[in-house]
Simulated assay, not measured.
Amino acid sequence: MTRTVDAAEVATTTYAWQVAADGLCVRAGRRMAVQGLDLRLGVGVHGLLGPNGAGKTTLIRALATVVSPAAGELRLLGRSAAGPGGLREVRRALGYLPQHLGYYPRFTVREFVEYMAWLKEMPRREIPGAVQHAIDRVGLTDRADARLKTLSGGMLRRTGIAQAIVNSPELLLLDEPTVGLDPEQRVAFRELLRDLGADACVLVSTHLVEDVVAACGAVVLIHDGRLAWQGTPQELTAEGGAGDAGDSPAERGYTALLRRHRGEVKR
């Protein structure tokens, strides 16, 4: 039987950037955690770095439409995030893993990912196959029917990644996705990131600079809610010197850039 194709399915992408922020300000409680941020993100994997309290989680929550901007302009997938008008369409095309994932302990992995697919308003006929594909991609095939309360912390994190990618999002936001993953799982996750970034905009917030260098094509460094630096992993590594703190060239580059942004003088 021939299916009628919706116009949205064949419409040409009309936006240059998946994320476009101008003078973005976002509150976290009473504090302005993101202050006047200008940012452009396109297809590829972007690592989001910054010290504790820099505003990384608040920025990701704003991009995930969990919180609304206090000021400035934010466009996601070509639509304004300022009001409710286009948010439903944006959320259908989003994938989001929060820092602290809420879940129902008695759900199985499959049930939880299916539930999240339903919340994202995926077509019912596509959900079973998409759920299995997402579970397979995070290496939980043999635990698909295990209850969440029986899983280790690393397995729960991989379940969170599965629900974030089940709808093949155009914009994927991951807040500390490698917490609880062992070294082998982190290597597999890096490979998955590179695959996802081939045709989607992926933003990964992490404190692990080496993961960013290994898996990301671009780096965003923020400090005190402001953009401190943006470039490639290679450029990040080149910023460091022998006198900078860190156990690797990438970590030394990171600390050098933070020091420079703060106006500190290297001793």
Rank of each mutant, 00 (worst) to 15 (best):
T2F: 02
D6F: 05
E9L: 14
A11R: 14
T12R: 13
T12W: 02
T13H: 04
T14M: 03
Y15C: 13
Y15H: 15
A16F: 00
W17D: 13
W17E: 13
A21W: 00
D22E: 14
A28C: 06
M32G: 04
M32H: 07
A33T: 07
L37E: 07
L37I: 06
D38F: 00
L39N: 04
R40V: 03
R40Y: 00
R40H: 10
G42F: 05
H46Q: 01
A54P: 01
A54S: 10
G55V: 02
G55R: 03
R61S: 10
A62K: 04
A64F: 07
A64M: 09
A64D: 10
A64R: 08
V66M: 08
A70H: 04
A70F: 01
L74S: 05
G78Q: 07
R79P: 04
A81F: 07
A81D: 12
G83Y: 04
G86V: 11
L87N: 06
R88L: 14
L94M: 12
Y96P: 03
L101M: 15
L101N: 14
G102M: 07
Y104V: 14
Y104H: 11
V109Y: 03
E111S: 12
E114V: 11
Y115T: 11
P123R: 09
R124P: 06
E126Y: 05
V131A: 08
I135G: 10
I135F: 06
I135E: 08
D136S: 12
V138K: 10
L140N: 10
L148D: 11
G153I: 10
G153S: 10
G153D: 08
M155C: 10
L156Q: 13
R157D: 10
Q163N: 11
I165D: 11
N167S: 15
S168Q: 15
E176V: 03
P177H: 06
V179W: 04
P183W: 08
Q185I: 07
R186W: 04
V187E: 15
V187S: 12
L193Y: 02
L193W: 02
A198T: 08
D199R: 12
A200H: 06
V202R: 05
L203N: 05
H207N: 03
L208M: 08
V209W: 00
D211T: 05
A215T: 08
A215V: 08
C216Y: 05
G217Q: 07
A218H: 09
V220R: 00
V220P: 00
L221K: 02
L221Y: 01
L221P: 05
I222F: 01
H223E: 14
A228Y: 01
G231M: 05
G231P: 04
T232H: 02
T232K: 00
A238S: 08
G241K: 00
G243A: 09
E251K: 03
R252K: 10
G253H: 02
Y254R: 01
T255I: 01
K266E: 09
